[in-house]
Write a protein that binds this DNA or RNA. Structure first.
Lengths: 64, 64
DNA sequence: GGGTAATGTCAAGTATCCTTGTCAAAAAGA
DNA sequence: TCTTTTTGACAAGGATACTTGACATTACCC
């Protein structure tokens, strides 16, 4: 599943650490999400969507 | 995180087994989701949303 | 009442998500 | 160039998601 985290983060000029802090997860988790190592849990996906004020479907793409 | 699975399923008169088959997961997984044992993974949440033709936010509620 | 379908639940195992800690390489700034 | 920041990556461990198999309870139908 692809995601737009890197772009959304760049638009705000945030580092991976900044985003991790805002979401209360580790920097490694953000890095793993951005580099496609795994998908977030549903609760984390909601947190991300809320932070960026976007629907989940606007951030994560449902294609393998 | 609450969800509307039971209602959506009832609207279609589906058993937990029917839904499990449609989503290609075990019946126990559906039961666990409906009884609040745990939340689905993001990929499964997308599958559920696609099946019911609804946004994820219309099925899962982002409140602990 | 007896039979069958549907639901709830448990246990044990595998897979996935997320953690801390660490290191190396790339990028950015002076 | 030197220094700092940022990113990518790995290992080991804990937490969560999902599996199969089994069993008990409940609901429905005859």
């Amino acid at each position: 599943m692809k995601n737009r985290l890197k772009v959304l983060r760049a638009e705000r000029d945030w580092s991976q650490s900044d985003l991790a802090d805002a979401l209360d997860v580790s920097r490694q988790t953000i890095n793993a999400l951005e580099t496609g190592k795994y998908d977030p849990s549903l609760p984390l996906a909601f947190k991300i969507a809320r932070l960026f004020a976007l629907p989940i479907e606007a951030i994560f793409e449902d294609t393998p």
